[in-house]
């Protein structure tokens, strides 16, 4: 009966995940490997292809700040921000559907999201990446890693640590139903700074961890130690987020006119 409960929980989280996140890993992998009847993504690999791509890609977050006149590196950086804000909204909706989450102290819910969202953003970004580039605008475009690397300092280095993490993480070959539980586990971390009431958070996470372990055993019977390997990735994720915050601090120092979205300001303030 306990296993049955864990399967119900896994199914519930997967359903919530599909409702909350429009671009699934399944869809992204189909586009990246050409296994889809949809139009191939527009490949952006230099300044000319970027300009062409901007005409071809229909997307409401492509030019959110009326920024066509902005320098390319800053334009791309702004788009990353817009996408991150959208991701925070999606993750919040997903979190609310984790059984027990909305019954937690409201300030603890805020703390869990504050510390969890970027780990989740980089986990899900890996689904859109391969070693050569990243899907953008819901799979309408593919921006190459080399192009991103060629952006002027300090923007050129901004995505490298995410690609390095993605390549290692994608080697685990998780699918969307695995990721749904993993993401819930990340949110319900009882060791986030400033939590008021840790016990109920750890209780929910214990249940989620049991569901994750069973899910991985059933979905990847030949992949030994996958559960342990996945838990280790949580440490890597914290490192990716710490580096990300350091980059942002550098960018805010060197780019005096750089504005940060108010939601992201809230999240980054006193983070690490």
């Amino acid at each position: 009966p306990e296993c049955a409960d864990q399967r119900v929980l896994a199914k519930h989280l997967y359903d919530s995940y599909l409702k909350s996140f429009p671009t699934t890993k399944a869809k992204a992998r189909a586009i990246l490997t050409g296994r889809t009847t949809d139009k191939s993504p527009v490949v952006i690999y230099d300044m000319n292809s970027l300009i062409r791509g901007e005409d071809q890609i229909k997307c409401n977050y492509l030019t959110p700040y009326g920024e066509q006149n902005e320098e390319v590196a800053i334009r791309i950086f702004h788009r990353c921000q817009s996408r991150s804000v959208e991701s925070v909204r999606e993750i919040t909706e997903f979190a609310k559907n984790i059984p027990g989450f909305v019954n937690l102290d409201l300030n603890d819910q805020v703390t869990l999201l504050k510390y969890g969202v970027h780990e989740i953003i980089f986990t899900m970004l890996a689904s859109l990446m391969n070693k050569d580039g990243v899907l953008i605008a819901d799979g309408q475009g593919f921006m190459t890693r080399e192009f991103l690397k060629s952006l002027r300092k300090p923007f050129g280095e901004f995505m490298e640590s995410k690609f390095e993490f993605a390549v290692r993480f994608n080697a685990l070959e998780l699918d969307d139903s695995d990721l749904a539980i993993f993401i819930a586990v990340i949110i319900l971390c009882g060791d986030r700074p400033g939590l008021v009431n840790v016990k109920p958070i750890e209780d929910i996470q214990d249940t989620l961890l049991q569901a994750l372990e069973l899910q991985l055993k059933m979905n990847h019977p030949d992949s030994s130690q996958l559960f342990a390997k996945l838990l280790q990735k949580m440490t890597d994720l914290r490192q990716v987020v710490t580096e990300h915050v350091q980059y942002l601090q550098l960018i805010r120092k060197t780019e005096v006119d750089m504005d940060l979205h108010p939601l992201l300001q809230e999240i980054y303030k006193d983070l690490y």
Partner: peptide, 20 residues
Amino acid sequence: KEKHKILHRLLQDSSSPVDL
């Protein structure tokens, strides 16, 4: 609470949680 007012708002938005 003031420090995280957008996160608070997102959490208290309409969409209702689903109970198992």
